[in-house]
């Protein structure tokens, strides 16, 4: 187990390094600098700006400088928000995204697993049809259609909730974004849970348990649930990651001041350091999630031994 962990951790380092380097080179090779905007700046100001952001050094020095500060956890200064470092911007935005993404992930795990179990045990019941309907809708209606429809119904027609914005972690502003993400996650978790439990319930060891005369409750919770949950565990990493990336869409629908909004604004303003910093950060988080889920899987599944 320990050697496997070590090997997995060692594999992640070149991944993060490669992504950072490729993005860094892409940024600096493509024509058009961050100061080529509509507003022309004088040569002296330009020189000062370039000195401030180390753009006057040769590329390899800039790269080494960037990598060195990255190792110390410094993502550099923002090109657009002159007085802000990328770290400060991230520190303001990350809690918003984590709150929305994290709470929707927890809610949708509970909801998805419960709905999946009921749907699998009562096939062709109303709950089963509900699960199939949600998962069908989740695959055909993208979040940027469901989100505006939620706004239309709950804030414009019914006037129950604000249509967007953020007020220092006030719950009413969080309900719609969390509901949207939860809907999308439940559509996947519910379908996978239903499918895997149906398969497990048809397997031989469950037939044995039934033949022994065990009550249904014991069969489901003691014998069937644990192996049926394994596919859901594998889903966790992609779901956690998509909670971050789909934040790009949710946060622009509901105008939330999170990471997704930051990266879309950064892209629109051609704020290179900000976008690069966010890509590096999210890649790091992605790799970390994958690592954690792989390790959890190795711990949970008795068939896997390293």
């Amino acid at each position: 187990m320990w050697s496997y962990t070590l090997r997995r951790v060692l594999v992640t380092i070149p991944t993060v390094w490669a992504v950072t380097t490729v993005c860094y080179l892409l940024l600096h090779i493509t024509p058009g600098g961050p100061f080529d905007g509509e507003r022309k700046v004088s040569a002296a100001v330009l020189a000062n700006l370039q000195a401030k952001y180390h753009l006057d050094m040769p590329l390899w020095q800039q790269y080494l400088y960037y990598m060195k500060s990255l190792l110390q956890g410094d993502l550099g200064a923002s090109f657009r928000y002159a007085d802000w470092s990328v770290n400060e911007l991230v520190a303001h935005a990350l809690p918003v995204s984590l709150t929305i993404g994290g709470s929707s992930l927890i809610i949708s795990l509970v909801l998805g697993v419960v709905l999946g179990i009921v749907a699998a045990l009562r096939q062709n019941s109303p709950i089963d049809y509900l699960v199939m309907l949600i998962s069908n809708m989740g695959s055909a209606f993208p979040s940027f259609i469901i989100g505006p429809v939620l706004v239309l119904v709950f804030s414009i027609l019914l006037k129950w909730l604000p249509s967007g914005g953020w007020d220092d972690f006030a719950v009413s502003y969080m309900v719609l974004p969390v509901a949207l993400l939860t809907f999308i996650n439940v559509s996947t978790i519910g379908r996978v849970m239903r499918g895997s439990l149906i398969e497990i319930m048809n397997s031989n060891f469950i037939r044995t348990a039934r033949a022994k005369g065990l009550p249904m409750r014991t069969i489901v919770f003691r014998h069937a649930l644990k192996p049926a949950l394994m596919p859901v565990v594998t889903l966790l990493a992609p779901l956690a990651i998509s909670s971050i990336t789909s934040a790009v869409v949710t946060e622009s629908i509901f105008s939330l001041p999170g990471l997704g909004k930051l990266i879309v604004n950064g892209a629109a303003n051609r704020d290179y350091t900000l976008v690069l910093g966010l890509v590096v950060l999210v890649t790091f988080m992605t790799v970390l999630f994958n690592l954690l889920v792989d390790l959890a899987y190795a711990l949970l599944d008795p068939k896997i031994r390293y």
Partner: peptide, 20 residues
């Protein structure tokens, strides 16, 4: 390919469209 999978694709798409 594994490395490409670890990349948050939507963010990279945004980065590339911004740049190119």
């Amino acid at each position: 390919v594994d490395m490409m999978y670890a990349v948050p694709y939507l963010l990279i798409a945004i980065l590339m469209v911004t740049l190119l």
